[in-house]
């Protein structure tokens, strides 16, 4: 199966954010800011998503959910932490139920600061994520090709030795 390189799909999950970054992410996808012009589409299905936008910190109850969503996404994948809560825990860092930022649970690639993160910052993060996603897709493809040629070479070698005997 080929690797998707263009038009990555985006999954948005609200960790334990206050809604502020949440609605700014939605505002990014609707007319005025329209992040869809960069070739992304918002999807609700983690199994079809390539970029994971997470808002809000991680708490004891949603940790498993975030981990599961990340694991369900096919590789290559990029994670963007939107807002200061997703980056570090933010104003809620000292709360008893907050474990910390998104990077306590899943590997985060791009951090978007702000409380609430402004649409311009979120769009910047998305553009960086699209570029990173393409880079990773290329890398993975090159790896797969390398493996294929390696396998082919091994097969050839196997055949040759087989013939030789």
């Amino acid at each position: 199966m080929g690797i998707v390189k263009r038009s990555p799909w985006l999954l948005h999950y609200d960790g334990s954010s206050c809604n502020g970054c949440d609605i700014e992410v939605l505002a990014c996808l609707t007319p005025v800011y329209d992040a869809e012009r960069f070739g992304i589409i918002n999807t609700g299905d983690p199994m079809q998503a390539d970029i994971f936008l997470i808002t809000g910190g991680i708490n004891t109850q949603n940790q498993a959910v975030v981990k599961q969503l990340y694991d369900q996404m096919p590789s290559p994948k990029v994670v963007v932490a939107v807002g200061v809560c997703a980056c570090t825990g933010g104003v809620f860092k000292e709360c008893y139920n907050i474990i910390g930022g998104a990077d306590t649970t899943i590997p985060v690639d791009i951090y978007v600061p702000g409380c609430a993160a402004r649409p311009q910052a979120i769009i910047d993060g998305i553009i960086k994520a699209v570029a990173l996603f393409q880079e990773r897709a290329d890398e993975q493809e090159a790896n797969q090709k390398g493996q294929k040629t390696e396998n082919a070479a091994l097969n050839e070698a196997g055949k040759e030795t087989g013939n030789g005997n």
Binding site: D14, S16, G57, N59, N62, V65, F92, C95, I98
Partner: peptide, 23 residues
């Protein structure tokens, strides 16, 4: 429920009443 529970009411112990406005 409980996926967004942060426990911000408990922050009154750590932030004074003016700072609490922002929380």
């Amino acid at each position: 429920i409980g996926f967004v529970h942060r426990g911000l009411e408990s922050l009154v112990e750590k932030k004074d009443f003016n700072e609490m406005t922002y929380v």
